[in-house]
Amino acid sequence: MIQQIYPQVQHDYQFELNKDMHISAAHYIPHEDAGKCQKVHGHTYFVNVTIAGDELDDSGFLVNFASLKKLIHNRFDHSILNDHSDLFSEVDPNYFPTTEGVARAIWELVQSDLDTKDNKPKCVQVFVRETPTSYVVFRPKKKEGQE
């Protein structure tokens, strides 16, 4: 069983769903300042996705847990993150496969999927732990005019 304490995000939605998973993946950071991390190496990432909303779907779910695992775990587990060129870049530092970039990419994938759902849940936080002592939290900025 995964037991993890992670930062909480404040929101006004009635429901909050959290899905935890482990992803084993390799990556490298294509920048000279990355030091040893310029070389291909791997991590067992711990990922937590927080989704919130007010309405349940026709199945009584905010989001089906299995669909989140399929969307994230099946895509990234046992892969080289740099090979996901639709999400990561070799030249744009905002899209390097750093822990920050991984958290952002997961949020983009999840929110894009959620936008297709009739009950319109929102991904309010993605937590990615790369090592036992290092993690990143990604929270989307609210757009102007958004609650």
Rank of each mutant, 00 (worst) to 15 (best):
L62R: 14
P121Y: 04
L62M: 11
N94S: 15
P30Q: 00
H78G: 10
V91L: 12
V136P: 02
K19A: 03
N94R: 11
G60Q: 11
F46K: 07
S24L: 00
Q146Y: 02
N18K: 05
A26S: 15
R104E: 09
G101E: 00
D118H: 08
Q111M: 13
I80P: 02
S85T: 09
N74I: 11
A66W: 03
K143I: 13
A25P: 11
E130Q: 11
P30F: 01
P97F: 03
L71N: 04
A66L: 04
K19I: 13
M1C: 04
V136W: 06
L81I: 08
F88H: 10
S112R: 04
L68D: 02
H22C: 09
I5G: 01
K69G: 11
K70S: 09
Q3W: 07
F61A: 09
K36H: 01
H22E: 15
I106G: 07
C123G: 02
N48M: 12
S89I: 08
E32F: 06
F65S: 03
G101P: 00
D113K: 14
S89D: 05
N64L: 07
K120Y: 00
N119L: 14
H41Y: 00
Q10K: 12
E100D: 08
D83L: 12
L56T: 04
T50N: 00
L56G: 06
V128Q: 09
P132N: 10
E16F: 13
V126A: 01
E130S: 08
C37K: 12
K69I: 15
Q14R: 13
M1N: 11
C37I: 01
P132Y: 02
F61Y: 15
V9L: 03
D77V: 15
G60M: 10
F138Q: 04
I2Y: 11
Q3E: 05
H27N: 07
D33L: 05
F127L: 05
V63I: 13
A105F: 12
L56H: 07
G60P: 11
R129M: 15
K120A: 00
L71I: 06
G60A: 07
E90H: 09
Y13H: 06
F46N: 06
V128E: 10
P30N: 04
V91S: 15
V49H: 01
C37E: 03
L71G: 03
W107Q: 10
L114S: 07
K120L: 00
Q38K: 13
D92C: 06
V9N: 06
I51N: 00
G35M: 00
E90W: 10
V91R: 12
S134D: 07
H22Q: 09
E108C: 06
I5Q: 07
L114Y: 01
V128T: 13
L71F: 08
Q111R: 08
H11A: 12
A26L: 09
P93S: 08
L109F: 05
K142Y: 03
P93R: 14
I23Q: 04
Y95T: 06
V124Y: 01
D115V: 01
I29K: 03
N64G: 09
Q3T: 15
F96T: 03
T50V: 14
E90M: 05
